[in-house]
């Protein structure tokens, strides 16, 4: 697998990746976990290359994670300060991309609030583009870090029963995770009230449940999603209280999953809304902080892999 040539120029989503693509990234991620746990956390594979972080939507952890990943690999990392207010107009969006492109970055990490926006930008630039989340479409590095976390702590993903619970309709994490876990052979379940279940979700290769207890039955892993209140422009739910009653993860509901089932959450959490604090902080069953750690490793793997494929920007005329 070490000499497998990753056949994509950008990482825009999990859709379009095959099992070998994903496993190649995860295997490299494993190696970087070891590096990150050693005293000198440095590799020089990206020395001399420029990584630009372009976040049109606010982010703390993903932006920081990419920044650390880039620095540990020796890249020159620039995080462009794009206030969410100053770049609202789309023309400026493409102009921003063209302007940045002229500075010849090798790698561009982009997050944008509109589905498809990162793909649009990827057509306008020369460097490799990594989607750090576009609207309600995809967040591929989250799915990869989740897969890496599960693989390391639970074991081979093939055959595991994994539930994804909460606001699936507005979740790019859910879309990427369903695609990723399906490719890796897991049995995926989606648990949400009907208003938060995307139309046609049953065709995604996942079983859909409205009853959380039934959905959790026999699950090895329970992935909770953030209830994205800021995305709700209408009343998808009567109240946070009612949501917690039926879909919040507490000890009683978790008892319906396998004994010792693991709990995950992409963060940031709404404690008491989608997850009870005691579960989130559970010493043996919660993988939430470990997900963050895996995030840096998997992003290092992605950056290194795509940098290999990136055209030699410096050699251009």
């Amino acid at each position: 697998m070490a000499d497998y040539a990753f056949p994509h120029r950008h990482l825009l989503g999990i859709e379009g990746l095959n099992r070998l693509d994903i496993e190649t990234l995860l295997a490299l991620g494993d190696r970087y976990v070891e590096l990150n746990r050693s005293r000198v956390k440095h590799a020089d594979v990206l020395a001399g290359r420029t990584l630009v972080n372009l976040f049109f939507e606010n982010s703390t952890r993903t932006q920081g994670s990419f920044e650390i990943a880039g620095r540990r690999l020796g890249a020159d990392v620039v995080t462009m300060p794009i206030a969410t207010s100053s770049v609202k107009k789309g023309e400026t969006l493409i102009d921003t991309a063209m302007t940045l492109n002229a500075m010849r970055p090798d790698l561009l990490v982009i997050r944008h609030g509109s589905s498809g926006a990162v793909k649009l930008l990827s057509r306008k630039v020369d460097g490799a583009v990594i989607n750090a989340g576009d609207g309600t479409h995809e967040h591929p590095t989250q799915a990869l870090l989740d897969a890496l976390t599960i693989r390391r702590r639970v074991g081979d993903i093939s055959g595991l029963r994994i539930a994804i619970c909460g606001d699936i309709l507005h979740s790019r994490v859910a879309r990427s995770n369903v695609a990723c876990l399906n490719v890796l052979g897991a049995e995926v379940r989606l648990i949400a009230p009907r208003t938060l279940t995307p139309p046609g979700a049953a065709e995604w290769g996942a079983e859909v449940f409205t009853d959380m207890r039934k959905g959790l039955d026999g699950c090895d892993v329970v992935m909770m999603l953030r209830l994205q209140q800021e995305r709700m422009d209408g009343a998808y739910l009567p109240s946070a209280r009612e949501f917690f009653h039926f879909y919040g993860l507490d000890a009683e509901k978790l008892d319906h999953a396998k004994p010792n089932a693991f709990v995950m959450h992409p963060g940031p959490m709404n404690r008491g809304v989608e997850i009870e604090s005691g579960i989130a902080d559970h010493k043996t069953r919660s993988l939430i902080t470990e997900q963050v750690e895996m995030g840096v490793a998997v992003r290092m793997a992605v950056l290194e892999t795509l940098a290999k494929n990136a055209p030699d920007i410096g050699a251009k005329n």
Binding site: E15, S115, G116, D134, G135, T136, H137, E138, L169, R172, R175, P198, P199, G200, A201, E203, W204, D233
Partner: peptide, 18 residues
Amino acid sequence: KNTVMNAGAFAARLGLRG
């Protein structure tokens, strides 16, 4: 209002309002 394309499985997969 605020929709982009036909509602359904394809729009949901693209993360677009239908």
